[in-house]
Design a binder for these strands. Structure first.
Lengths: 233, 233
DNA sequence: CCGAATAGTGTTGTATGCAATCGGCCACTT
DNA sequence: AAGTGGCCGATTGCATACAACACTATTCGG
């Protein structure tokens, strides 16, 4: 019986990154509940890779605060930091106010210096698509898509700010905050999403003051909304 | 010539952690300048371990924002985020205000509920030693010891707050901020260090309001001092 | 019957080897 | 001579193999 050619499967571009994103997604939105014990071997089998990529993914997720590891003892999914909710939102307000302000500054700088750079256009284009996707989701009532789109929008703004260190911080904190909403599926409605276009407009207009104010207010609204819902004072 | 017995060296307790701390220390304080290309093999040889612990350390440092890695292309030391200085300080004010406040709350909670837990005592003890070491360094004029002690004090307060997620965030941001001071050896003087005892006292007194106010003011002072020195408006 | 030392099992930590990929150099073409 | 294509060294990504350690259960002594 003739063997088929070795492996015409589409080559997996980056196993480690894929594994890391999958596990994080499963923790934030899905199946991996806090306290669950996760072993490298099990995850390796689940994703069809060896332990090494899984190890690296777990280390990264540990740095992001989603799993706790003890040497030779294994890893477990962290507890959702509900007690830190208010503080996390406070830090996020400061952080996202800064990213929005810087994004607006950078936008005007890009245009005043001739043609914007390629990477700027790429980031801006991504945001345009995200806004469209979100609007479509709202129009069709697919509110369950919003949490993921929401993260990506805010990270997109951070990218546009051009600050790697602020983006890294936001990546860490926004994941946690989205995690807080884990049990609440359609927690933020159409109102919250529509504010994104206002923020985007302020950035495009190169208006740092409005961009920061709108973003801080936007974040503050979700903070208040969260605390109203899950009052843990 | 007779061979010595195999390896009477004191056993290395945690190579990966040690390597990671060493590299980060070299980046923040020492020899590894931004833009330097770091290869796994070279670091492995330097620290006498195989590539795997080095890999994991580099991944962690990448998550912390100290190195940039591209797949199959290698890693380089990141640029010092001088442009983000003001924003990083702003975020840090919000963050450390929160940790100090929570540390004070937790302190009173520990004592009101009978005997404090063992881990609380351990963290508190560490801070006591740090404060003594810092005072001694100031008294003897060893100001070059202060940056490292400073990081550890602030992280110690975060530990005392009992919030893992806030501690993780601070770990990331405080490293960057100390990095900003890299070129300036004795940047903060005796005044700044002495404020630490005031903060500690407010926490021990279980006074969240004072703890937050003092800590925020303390951080704000270093922010102002930094911007005065390296004005990049 | 109970406590403590101990062997067993499972999991992580590290080392080595090989394959995939990137960057630069050189010959070749136009 | 400048641009272009392909080859080669260097480096990382991953898989397999083994060693070190933590946790559990079992057994032995009291």
């Amino acid at each position: 019986m003739p063997l088929l050619p070795p492996d015409p499967q589409p080559v997996d571009p980056a196993p480690k990154q894929r594994v890391q994103d999958e596990i994080r997604h499963d923790i934030i939105f899905g199946s991996l509940r806090p306290g669950t014990r996760v072993t490298e071997a099990a995850l390796a089998a689940k994703y069809g890779v060896s332990r090494i990529p899984v190890r690296e993914a777990l280390r990264a997720l540990e740095a992001e605060g989603f799993v706790d590891s003890k040497p030779y003892a294994g890893s477990t999914v962290s507890e959702i930091p509900v007690d830190d909710a208010d503080d996390l939102f406070a830090v996020r307000e400061a952080l996202e106010g800064a990213t929005a302000r810087r994004a607006a500054r950078r936008a005007s700088a890009q245009f005043s210096a001739g043609e914007p750079s390629a990477e700027w256009w790429k980031a801006r284009r991504l945001l345009a698509d995200l806004l469209d996707d979100g609007d479509q989701a709202v129009a069709e009532g697919n509110l369950e898509l919003l949490p993921e789109l929401n993260i990506r929008f805010h990270l997109g703004i951070a990218d546009l700010s051009g600050s790697a260190s602020l983006t890294a911080l936001l990546r860490q904190i926004s994941g946690k905050i989205e995690w807080l909403y884990a049990t609440d599926v359609d927690h933020r409605g159409k109102q919250s999403w529509s504010e994104h276009r206002l923020i985007m407009a302020a950035i495009d207009a190169g208006n740092p003051v409005d961009a920061e104010r709108l973003m801080a207010g936007h974040v503050h609204q979700s903070r208040v909304g969260y605390l109203d819902r899950f009052a843990t004072p």
